[in-house]
Amino acid sequence: MTGSRSQALGAAGRWLDPVLTLADRVGLRAVWIGGALLLASASLVSIDVTIRKLFGLSVGGADEISGYAFAIGVAWAFPFALLRRANVRIDALYQHMPARVAAILDLVALIALAVFVTVLTRYAWEVVAGSWNLGALSNSQLKMPLWIPQGLWFLGLALFFATTAVLTLRTALALLSGDLATVRALAGARSIEEEAADEAAYGKTLAAGASETRAP
């Protein structure tokens, strides 16, 4: 590959960086919303449990709603987990590979992910469309129009699909331009150095959290 060509690819890849930054910000906010949904459903279930015990009443569908909140929150957290490289990889061999081979494996992993997510998102849409067409209402007293929770769930998967697509493209461009460091930063299994850096940051948070009671 000629130098100029690799430079052009590198430039094209860098052009995608703002998109990835945006994806990260969206992913982070989606996680906050997902967590808030979870907390809200915990509150609802607690209210349900309390009034059931005290007054023999029921909010009606608290468990159902928390199931939806769970599905939606998790789907919305997929992009964040991907960008923070939380997906578990069996790295027994990987970590002993030369940098170039490891970078290729990183791209292969992302492509495999892209295949899976494409199929998942494609047929998740069938679920939403099916519920919409049938006018499906959940089989409970709540009678929730199923397209609503399923649609929000699908939205998370669609976001996951878009994030995967951008990340795969960016990683491929970086690999083709020979920029192994970027491949590693975007898609590599987490290294010892990164671990150490993050651990330090984590330690600081903890210290801030518990300083007043820390034993000497």
Partner: peptide, 26 residues
């Protein structure tokens, strides 16, 4: 009436509620 009854599905749920029980899903 006044009892918490585990139900499966909307139909059972409505019957239990109509009889004065509390339908519970789990």
């Amino acid at each position: 009436k006044g009892k918490k009854v585990r139900v499966a599905g909307r139909s059972q749920s409505e019957l239990v509620a109509a009889l004065g029980g509390t339908p519970v899903t789990m």
